[in-house]
Amino acid sequence: MSKQFQFKLVLLGESAVGKSSLVLRFVKDQFDDYRESTIGAAFLTQTVTLEDQTTVKFEIWDTAGQERYKSLAPMYYRNANCAVVVYDITQAASLEKAKTWIRELQRQADPSIVIALCGNKLDLSARRQVTEEEASKYADEEGLLWSETSAKTGEGVNAIFNAIAKKLPLTAPPSARGARVAAPGTTRQSVDLNKQPTVQGSEACNC
């Protein structure tokens, strides 16, 4: 009998780095050259089956307008088990922004959150501004998963989600996870009542 787990995954990063495209490739294996920018939040799910027949269901919260809606942060981070922070390898500034998100996650989200740093637009590597060394070094320092992907060609997309699935603690009973299905009509799982917003000392500014 295979085990099934469900996790909440939040997607972060500067606008136009390809967050939604990445998810679209992962969930529907599609790519749209002229995708309009996401407004508000989009919500998708996708299941990954690991080698040992464990299935991991991702609830993907594709965020947009995070800058505009700072007050939404608690909702995004609440019960998030994993986060994919995306940057654009052709835009050096987008990596800086990604670092900001990572600091924010480390401060605000559950300490056990699995964070993956993802350099998107690998198909445009001719215009690369962020070297692999630079990004992977930073990821190592921070203890993040790291990989480069191309939502356009699909390269590396499934790999990074698989890597996340593997890294997630698959030992705890699924009911202990905060994440649950939000589709109407689905049965609710019990909800973690013990989780209070964790308070960590953090005087550093987030920029």
Partner: peptide
């Protein structure tokens, strides 16, 4: 505008309705 409570795609729709 947040699309969070949208009946079909909003992740918090069910919570809100409940």
């Amino acid at each position: 505008a947040l699309h969070i409570f949208h009946p079909e795609t909003g992740p918090l729709y069910q919570d809100l309705r409940d």
